[in-house]
Design a protein around this nucleic acid. Structure first.
Lengths: 247, 247
DNA sequence: AAATAGTTTGCGTTTTTATGCATAAAAAAT
DNA sequence: ATTTTTTATGCATAAAAACGCAAACTATTT
């Protein structure tokens, strides 16, 4: 069997079965596991598969179904970097969805090990792409508008958690607090605030000094605020004055 | 034998067998491997074959190596259409992930109202895009390889459901049953089978007559099998004989 | 027909590539 | 923390490719 043929066979098996073990391939094609491993590495270099310990995963299944959100992409990267700096090894994290949070999920360093609890479908997807992050999905009814799990089940699950840090993506925030327009989402976010040591708001500055109908919490419940602006920016002064650490 | 003759012969062999070895050709035509190599190089320069280490491949082989998933997209649409026909208004559905199932999710008619329970992140995402489908996510730890919630929490949640129909995407299936290679996923799929009135397997025919380490269930637990093939296709006979309704 | 120029082919040599094995390092699993 | 499994690395071997060269063959010109 030619090397190229062998690699084509491997690729087919991976795509077909989603996941293959080196040992199975080795037995099936009758070559050493060494050779299989070299093939997998080459296919991975060509971006055709995802190599994992002991075998490989299909790429077609894992390549992002979420198109990268280009709106204010640079700002979001800045925010992401600041947020990442707060995470320590093996922390328990809570997280909502939202484009800013998802952008951050993509920038988590490869070697970071941590556990993320989330009820957001896209956020769970992004976290799950990372090799060393464990993702726990807090299931329940999925809200169509925000793609986040809402309802009593989700909330009671959240109540059972004690997280170190909570990354909160928001819709609106002003000096009277954080607000939203979806009652079910508000409930979930409130529960998440209660269940974590520290709450970190991630937002582009555009959302500051706006508000919506329903209040999630007032500023005293926010510990850290991260925007793309310089922490000393005058726009952020009201929040610093309210006792929030602004990064 | 003339050079042009020889090259014509080689080309014929490549098209016939999809691949040739330099050593075989050399023995067959009684010329040195050096000459064969030169011929192969020339044919490759003319873009008539793909030269690889040890021989050559036909162009059709190589193109399928590059993008193997295109031809299956059509198959999956066929499967999706058959699957959709089983759903009635306001049914309670269970569903795994998997590319075939996700393809089906995209083809659900706009006006269909139903409730889908799933533990699959990408499937939940697709279902959530539909205006009239309610999505309940069965949360727990997300398996990185399959992006599906696994674990005791998920299973006990599944046990609490009584669904009308279960769309099961699979990795491998033969006459001895449905199998997989991830223990945690097997557990979840088993629970889902138990919790639904009818189990419908969705798969491209390529996965038929393959098997993996861990058994999910035997054929008696499958009610309906949907592939891209005609229900009368001989390949499906064993499954019809086992009492499965083949669509 | 002989001479000549241009191809083609086979062969020896050198490089490159492919593969398996042994061993050490790293990563999971227990 | 220890044991097992998986991976990386260097090395040996064999197979294949590249290269140069000379002999054999073709075709063309004289």
């Amino acid at each position: 069997m030619l090397k190229t043929e062998r690699q084509a066979y491997i690729l087919r098996q991976v795509d077909l079965h989603n996941r293959v073990l080196s040992s199975d391939l080795s037995a099936a094609i009758q070559v050493s596991e060494d050779t299989i491993r070299r093939d997998l590495n080459e296919l991975a270099d060509m971006d055709k598969i995802i190599k994992v310990h002991g075998g490989a995963l299909s790429k077609s299944f894992h390549s992002s179904f979420l198109k990268a959100d280009v709106y204010q992409a640079e700002s979001k990267k800045l925010i992401a970097q600041k947020a990442v700096s707060l995470i320590r090894k093996d922390m328990f994290m809570l997280s909502t969805g939202g484009t800013t949070v998802i952008e951050m999920a993509r920038l988590l360093p490869e070697d970071l090990t941590a556990t993320f609890f989330t009820g957001s479908v896209p956020a769970a997807y992004e976290y799950a792409q990372h090799p060393n992050i464990q993702v726990i999905f807090l299931g329940d009814k999925i809200s169509k508008s925000s793609l986040i799990a809402v309802g009593g089940e989700a909330i009671s699950k959240i109540n059972g958690i004690k997280a170190d840090l909570f990354f909160l993506g928001i819709n609106a925030m002003d000096i009277s607090g954080v607000s939203d327009n979806d009652w079910e989402v508000v409930q979930v976010k409130r529960a998440m605030i209660q269940s974590s040591q520290q709450t970190v708001v991630l937002t582009i500055s555009e959302k500051l000094n706006t508000n919506q109908r329903l209040t999630i919490c007032d500023l005293s419940e926010i510990d850290i605020l991260i925007t793309e602006l310089d922490p000393q920016d005058p726009m952020l002064k009201p929040y610093r004055d309210a006792g929030i650490t602004v990064l």
